[in-house]
Design a protein around this nucleic acid. Structure first.
Lengths: 230, 230
DNA sequence: CAGTCACATGACTGACCAGTCACATTGTAT
DNA sequence: ATACAATGTGACTGGTCAGTCATGTGACTG
């Protein structure tokens, strides 16, 4: 969707442009995000943007695409845990990866979040498609879990997938508020403040909730380990 | 927050104004919602709006307040189930009320949703306060549940409250997509299409998930009834 | 050096917006 | 009927925006 001109651009220029654009679209919803801001920030002419992209929408969709690909790469590059360990561990890992991506790429994460739950005027385009693909993946995982006899087969598949998707997408936000993390410092790459190890307990608790729900369990019956570390 | 002038207005006029304003702010995010649209819709002068409210922001905050109060009234007017029935039933009821409010007052619901998860430029004003109050209520319910010995005391209170709040707020959206409900027709009050009785099964499933999570339960141990019907 | 191509520029257009204000209209009390 | 207050009005101001386009620049080519 970017024009050839954009792809021909020297790397530094292209990076700088993307950086500013990501910053803008992460920080404001589609209606408020402004091409004028971006060019002012970069000190380039407005016309340049229209040499690179068809229009605002085109740029936006490209950023969504980029962020999604980045996220998929991020998750895939950190290999999933051994499937032998069961789906509890897998759930925990999924949560952790979601949150970790949010910490390491807060702006990309924000763009994805806005695309999923905000309202750009393109709900029907590739947006729903993205949502669907994300849901599809989770649905698949749940089905495997059911097949493996670990997941309650009485659960409504669609609903459960929806709720899991919701939780994995929102969980980072909870962490940010819980740990009193300054989002601005996160965005500036200053996440030295974050100790992933120290927060692992929270992932375990979240996975625990997703896995066993609210109900008090009689202590003797534990089907899935909740005291696992890594 | 409305000026006296607005409160003096004849009922029909006031209602008509609110109706148009709600329509506008439900349908577009804060930045895109337009006073000009509202007055055009109503056929009144723009100046009038500024006789009624300080500014756009003032109007918006009033609508949020109104919607919140309406929602609280809605939920309270349908009395909660007998606390004897336990927290599983209570959870189910909470979900159902949330969804039902969404169906019967889709526009107000949308305004609340936008206030909670969208980004108006007032996150720090009464917005967070609203979020906090909602979270506070849920936290209280969870604590009661723990005290009553029904809820797993190992769960992180804050986190669980956050997730429950998230789910109860988002669940209506899931129903809308799941049941292929046309949001436009909902807004137009045409919710004859909706059969609350028929959807009750979905609430039960959702409560089931919240209550027992993903894990398959060995069939013999059931601490909380999952086959309850009202 | 002339010609061509890729890219950059920024003033400009038409549109939309929130908010204002001098003036007009309506209602009410005397 | 008169006076006064309350309410309504809409053209106008200053601002922002997306997108355009005629012009400029620099690099490479033959």
């Amino acid at each position: 969707m970017p024009k050839q001109t954009f792809l021909n651009l020297p790397e530094t220029k292209r990076k700088a442009f993307l950086d500013a654009a990501i910053e803008e679209f992460a920080g404001r919803d589609y209606a408020s995000a402004s091409i004028s801001h971006i060019v002012a920030q970069l000190g380039i002419a407005k016309g340049s943007v229209y040499q690179y992209f068809e229009d605002k929408r085109d740029l936006y969709l490209y950023l969504i695409d980029l962020a999604s690909r980045e996220r998929i790469m991020f998750v895939q590059s950190a290999g999933p845990p051994d499937s032998q360990k069961g789906f509890f561990i897998y759930t925990q890992w999924l949560l952790e990866m979601g949150a970790r991506f949010g910490f390491e790429h807060p702006r990309l994460n924000q763009i994805i979040y806005r695309a999923m739950f905000g309202d750009a005027p393109f709900r029907d385009d590739m947006l729903r498609q993205m949502k669907e693909s994300s849901l599809g993946l989770i649905r698949q995982i749940i089905m495997q879990g059911i097949a493996a006899g670990e997941i309650n087969p009485d659960l409504d598949l669609d609903m459960t997938a929806y709720l899991l998707n919701l939780i994995t997408n929102e969980f980072g936000n909870y962490l940010v508020s819980k740990l009193a993390i300054d989002p601005q410092r996160l965005i500036e790459g200053d996440y030295a403040q974050l100790d992933i190890e120290a927060t692992r307990g929270i992932f375990t608790k979240a996975a625990e909730f997703m896995w066993h729900g609210l109900a008090k369990r009689s202590s003797s019956i534990v089907e899935t380990p909740s005291s696992v570390r890594n």
